[in-house]
């Protein structure tokens, strides 16, 4: 039996997990790509959603050779696309409920 956990990572732990130096992670946060809780880098806490987003950002940066500003734009647009897709899906289903008998 496996239990589930909530993730609260410090800057250092987060850097180890995703294998980036601290100054890169600070730069990523400065671009608003992830928003850790806590005011200063010492107090930052990254949750599991931030970790997932960070990994996605690193993939885009490495694999598409983007700079951080471009990564931030790409992620914002991907979020928007996903949100619109989900909404479109939901509205289509709602509409179908009224069309079908």
């Amino acid at each position: 039996m496996t239990t589930t956990l909530t993730v609260q990572l410090t800057l250092e732990e987060c850097c180890q997990l995703v294998e980036v130096p601290a100054d890169s992670l600070i730069e990523i946060v400065e671009h608003g790509i992830v928003e850790p809780g806590g005011g200063s880098p010492d107090a930052w806490r990254f949750d599991d959603a931030a970790l997932g987003r960070l990994r996605q950002a690193l993939r885009l940066q490495r694999e598409l050779e983007l700079d951080w500003q471009a990564v931030a734009v790409a992620l914002d647009l991907l979020d928007e696309v996903n949100r619109l897709r989900a909404e479109n899906e939901r509205l289509k289903r709602r509409l179908l409920r009224f069309m079908e008998l």
């Binding site: 996605q56 993939r59 885009l60 694999e63 598409l64 050779e65 790409a74 991907l78």
Partner: peptide
């Protein structure tokens, strides 16, 4: 091609 097929995109 990377942009076109990237699993995030």
């Amino acid at each position: 091609l990377a942009r076109k097929y990237h699993p995030d995109m």
